[in-house]
Amino acid sequence: MAGEELISGRAASFGRRAADYAQHRPDYPVAAVEWALAPVAAERPRVLDLAAGTGKLTAMIAALGLDVVAVEPDDAMRAELSALLPEVTALSGAAERIPLPDASVDAVLVGQALHWFDHERALPEIGRVLRRGGVLAGLWLDDDTSVEWVAGMDRIYTAHTPGDESRGMVLPVELGPFEPQEQAEFPHRQRRTAETLVATAATHSKLLTMPEPERGQALDRMLAYLKSRPETAEGEFDFPMRAVVLRAIRS
């Protein structure tokens, strides 16, 4: 499997571990979500959480008291979202075919998913449902490898998952009706144990699509490393991350 087929396979891998994703994936820092929405915050915006997954970002938008609609293509992921947030409208759809009318939302937020989109189709479609002056923002969580033990964990992960055919942290605004993008970063932490941090890693697409026994060997190496470190060997600890946010205004 290569190129776009590999990307598509990885993007579709999450549903079969939807419950694990809901349990182990981190949320986002409130400050990052607020910064993403700042250009429209005074208007009590209606927000679309696009590729909403199990509702990690949806829940935070709802907690801010905002009107939010979630769109998610995977049935299993969307079922987890609806179980967690029954009051939120959750629709089947994708970035390339959003089931909403023209200019019907004030903001489109995309958590940890914009790199999976077919950008040439998705950016004009996002521009269609977003009213003029509205905001598009992509949010990503990344390990804070400035911390020495986190860098060691990351080296083990990348040794077992070389290369990356995804599109990375990008907001290709030139493909849609958007003004130049802005970027900000925010520190974040997730309370973990060695076992639950490995369980979180196991929900990443590269490991979800890795064949056995390689997958089990990679996870075992990560656990052995965490058990060897004084910071992570016993009990709970803070896993340091950073949230990267890219936003652009609909022109």
Results as ranks from 00 to 15, higher is better:
1 M>L: 13
3 G>R: 06
4 E>L: 12
5 E>V: 04
5 E>K: 03
12 A>M: 09
12 A>H: 14
13 S>A: 15
13 S>P: 15
17 R>D: 10
18 A>L: 06
23 Q>N: 08
25 R>W: 03
29 P>Y: 05
30 V>H: 11
34 E>Q: 13
35 W>Q: 00
35 W>V: 00
36 A>L: 00
39 P>G: 13
40 V>G: 02
40 V>M: 09
42 A>V: 05
43 E>S: 13
44 R>H: 14
44 R>A: 12
48 L>N: 05
49 D>K: 08
50 L>I: 06
51 A>P: 13
55 G>Y: 04
55 G>N: 04
57 L>A: 07
57 L>Y: 08
58 T>L: 12
61 I>T: 13
61 I>V: 15
62 A>V: 05
63 A>H: 08
66 L>W: 15
67 D>K: 05
68 V>H: 06
71 V>Y: 10
74 D>G: 09
75 D>W: 01
75 D>M: 03
78 R>M: 07
79 A>W: 07
81 L>C: 02
82 S>L: 11
82 S>N: 07
83 A>K: 13
83 A>W: 07
84 L>K: 15
84 L>H: 13
88 V>S: 09
96 E>F: 08
98 I>H: 14
102 D>Q: 13
103 A>N: 15
105 V>I: 01
108 V>P: 09
108 V>M: 08
108 V>E: 12
111 G>K: 03
111 G>R: 02
111 G>E: 07
113 A>K: 07
120 E>K: 07
126 I>N: 12
128 R>Q: 09
130 L>M: 03
132 R>N: 12
132 R>F: 09
132 R>D: 11
133 G>A: 09
139 L>Y: 00
139 L>F: 01
140 W>R: 00
144 D>C: 00
145 T>K: 10
145 T>C: 14
146 S>R: 15
146 S>D: 12
152 G>E: 15
152 G>M: 05
153 M>R: 00
156 I>W: 01
156 I>Q: 04
161 T>C: 09
162 P>M: 01
164 D>Y: 11
166 S>K: 10
166 S>M: 11
168 G>T: 12
171 L>V: 14
172 P>T: 11
177 P>N: 11
178 F>L: 03
178 F>Q: 07
180 P>W: 10
181 Q>V: 01
182 E>L: 01
183 Q>S: 11
183 Q>V: 12
184 A>H: 07
188 H>I: 00
189 R>T: 11
190 Q>G: 07
192 R>C: 12
196 T>P: 13
196 T>Y: 10
200 T>A: 06
201 A>W: 05
201 A>G: 04
203 T>S: 02
207 L>Q: 07
207 L>M: 13
208 L>V: 05
208 L>I: 04
211 P>E: 13
211 P>Y: 03
211 P>Q: 06
215 R>V: 09
215 R>F: 05
222 M>I: 02
223 L>D: 04
225 Y>W: 10
226 L>E: 02
226 L>A: 02
226 L>Q: 03
228 S>N: 11
236 E>W: 08
238 D>I: 00
239 F>K: 08
239 F>Y: 15
240 P>A: 03
242 R>Y: 10
251 S>H: 14
251 S>G: 14
251 S>R: 15
